[in-house]
Write a protein that binds this DNA or RNA. Structure first.
Lengths: 200, 200
DNA sequence: AATATAGCGGAGGGCGCCTCCGTTTCATGT
DNA sequence: ACATGAAACGGAGGCGCCCTCCGCTATATT
């Protein structure tokens, strides 16, 4: 019943694909910048396409929100693969920070989405699955390298970051700092262990 | 800082008071019937006043939502007084059922309100206080009469009803039935005790 | 009854939603 | 290369909502 699984019945014309991407990326930026209530016309303008084109690709606001949501998760999953090139801890840290940034904006998105679909709709389950299978190898690798405390579960880590992302504050840097502390906690389980300073 | 405490600086002209009440009641009905996103113009039409009049009394959507919210709580508190004439248990049951009905609609209202004010704004605290001091005597009286289990705390009861009210279901009667069960649980703490059938 | 003024109401400007359809661009067969 | 049908584009236009402004009306006061 997912609205996203249409393995191209017909592969979408080149310009159409281009426009679809432009809208998606404009929507992502706009939602992040102005909140999930941004007008669709503004998004179309920002994407440099006509309003009609936007509606052709995303017939309802829900469809667009959902697509952005899914798109972000997919990018996050892809990022996990690319980060595999780094050392275990930097890879994990980078990914978790990115996850944090994502979760901050996700709340607005998810809240708005819930106006249209119910809490345990397909989208959410699927996305959660993707997220976990993307993150698991990174955590596993860092753990194997002795870079994180051995008792850290991925679900706990994600919860923790989710909680931090939910913090209401006027100062967005605060989130970054708090996240830094929490990540140090993930890395070291007991006091006294020498640590490299984590750059802000 | 409450927006509701203006002990009439000047007592509001007769027609103005009338119109204010009409709007408030129309808003309550409309919000209940169509959700908290109902257009203000529709509410004005329903109340039989001009849109300008609505805006005169409630300059923002938030103001109106808040007023409805407060008004409902006040009615609930007043109901508690009137119910004092009934026998202890019927009084408590009637009030709690009414509380349940209120909480069902309240969720939509509260959710919308939270778009404007933060979670622990004045309004909420005040209303919670009023609610509790209205309900406490009813519960106390029923307890004294041996009609409810002695270990029932008002806050627990309210929480329970709140939880039931939150249940998502297509069938609104289900809520009523479930509430009935829960109230029986409030009344009787152990099996085997004879009970009068609770009328639906 | 006369006057001052609080209060009324709705027209109107701005904006967002969404549809419809004439125009443009692409893909495909020759 | 070119023609041709189909896919995709884009924006005008209709509608509803938000909110303000201000000429008119109802009420209170003397």
């Amino acid at each position: 019943m997912s609205t996203t699984q249409h393995p191209p019945a017909r592969p979408l014309r080149a310009d159409a694909q281009r426009n679809r991407d432009k809208v998606l990326s404009a929507a992502r930026d706009a939602f992040t910048e102005y909140g999930a209530a941004t007008s669709l016309e503004a998004i179309a303008r920002r994407a440099g396409v006509g309003i009609g084109t936007l509606y052709r690709h995303f017939p309802t606001r829900q469809a667009l929100l959902e697509a952005v949501y899914v798109d972000e998760v997919e990018q996050l999953a892809r990022a996990a693969d690319e980060l595999a090139a780094l050392e275990p801890w930097p890879a994990l840290e980078a990914w978790l920070r990115r996850l944090g940034a994502y979760l901050v904006t996700k709340h607005a998105l998810a809240a708005e989405l819930l106006n249209y679909v119910d809490r345990d709709a397909d989208v959410f389950a699927t996305c959660r699955g993707e997220l976990f299978s993307a993150g698991a190898p990174l955590l596993e690798r860092a753990r194997a390298a002795g870079e994180v405390r051995p008792d850290a579960e991925l679900s706990d880590v994600v919860q923790m970051i989710g909680g931090i992302a939910k913090i209401q504050t006027a100062d967005p840097d605060a989130i970054v700092r708090i996240l830094g502390m929490a990540l140090d906690g993930l890395r070291f389980s007991s006091p006294g262990r020498p640590r490299s300073p984590s750059v802000n």
